[in-house]
């Protein structure tokens, strides 16, 4: 299966449920191909949870959801050993993280300790419960949602180490007028909302990932990526710039972006497009910077500062 065809099929399937936000769907697929995790952020009522559930359904795999609240404990996420009186022995009961698609709804409502229980599973695709390690089957993706306008009472900001493990952070915008009209019409006429059907398997996923890794990155583009990352570490308004994990994520995301456009090479515009999505949330702004700009605006400044390589040195 070709990557661009796969993206089209998935978009069509998800389009049955989600009207608009096509870019967001594409970017989530980008993360999925790269075995990355996505943090979805937007004001309430824009369809974050519905989108996450729809993506999960298009994958022929298991789907679990955790509704985070302040009293969710790390063991509620990872799992526990429980005593089985019938068998007279302890048995392992794995938590909801052992799945293919994990929807971590309203992740910023959990305490930092509970949020941190996802660290191992997100990075190493395994979970350790009482010294017993459980491997998680691929594909595995965490789709976490959070609401930016939440009052601080009862919410906990995600720690930087946790944010760094998200491949990209996406902000879902309000739909356009015509899209919103279609949403209204769909909800007026349909009694039962359609559900997307599974259209790709774990094998498809592996094949796509391998194809994406073959997309060529020229030296000029490689330097461009490095320049962007280095500039984030030197900007006066940035306290902590993008990590090497961020560099790798940016490289992988641009490869997938090129493959989705049916290209076998990466262009600087791919980097320009993906950098704000992949790097912004990994940067910690200074106190002064945070009062004047948000991470996306600073990322925009960084992209303006860095020289874009000319086209002839990009193509193979």
């Amino acid at each position: 299966m070709e990557t661009h065809q796969f993206v089209k099929d998935v978009k069509d399937e998800i389009g049955k449920v989600i009207i608009g936000n096509e870019d967001t769907v594409e970017w989530i697929l980008n993360a999925l191909i790269n075995e990355g995790h996505v943090l979805l952020e937007s004001v309430p009522g824009t369809g974050k949870t519905t989108l996450a559930k729809s993506i999960a359904r298009t994958i022929d795999g298991d789907f679990n959801r955790i509704q985070f609240t302040p009293d969710v404990l790390p063991s509620d996420v990872t799992g526990i050993h429980f005593f089985n009186p019938k068998e007279q022995q302890f048995e392992l009961r794995v938590g909801p993280v052992v799945t293919n698609v994990l929807l971590a709804d309203e992740i910023n409502r959990a305490t930092p300790r509970t949020q941190s229980s996802l660290l191992e599973v997100m990075e190493e695709k395994q979970v350790t419960i009482d010294r017993e390690t459980v491997k998680i089957e691929q594909p595995f993706i965490v789709l976490a949602t959070q609401n930016p306008i939440e009052s601080q009472q009862g919410t906990f900001d995600l720690p930087e180490a946790q944010l760094d493990r998200f491949f990209m952070k996406l902000e879902m915008s309000y739909p356009e007028v015509e899209e919103e009209r279609r949403i209204m019409q769909a909800h007026r006429t349909e009694t039962e909302r359609p559900t997307p059907s599974p259209i790709f398997t774990k094998e498809n996923m592996k094949e796509l990932s391998e194809k994406v890794r073959q997309v060529h990155i020229s030296e000029a583009v490689e330097n461009y990526i490095l320049d962007i990352v280095r500039t984030t570490r030197e900007h006066p308004y940035i306290e902590v710039g993008a990590s090497p994990r961020g560099t790798i994520a940016l490289m992988k995301s641009v490869q997938a972006e090129a493959a989705m456009r049916n290209r076998s090479y990466v262009t600087p515009s791919d980097v320009k497009k993906m950098a704000p999505l992949v790097l912004s949330h990994r940067m910690v702004l200074t106190l002064e910077g945070a009062t004047k700009h948000n991470q996306k605006e600073i990322m925009g400044e960084v992209l303006q500062q860095v020289n874009v390589p000319v086209e002839h040195s990009v193509e193979r």
């Binding site: 009052s151 601080q152 009472q153 106190l287 945070a290 009062t291």
Partner: peptide, 30 residues
């Protein structure tokens, strides 16, 4: 340190004066 701020400048709403509810961090400061 989390902090809450009350200023006796009137505004409409449940709390009838300027009020920054308890919170911490960069966004809260902004």
């Amino acid at each position: 340190i989390p902090y809450e701020l009350l200023i006796n400048v009137p505004k409409r709403g449940n709390v009838s004066f300027y009020h920054v509810s308890n919170g911490y961090g960069r966004d809260h400061y902004a």
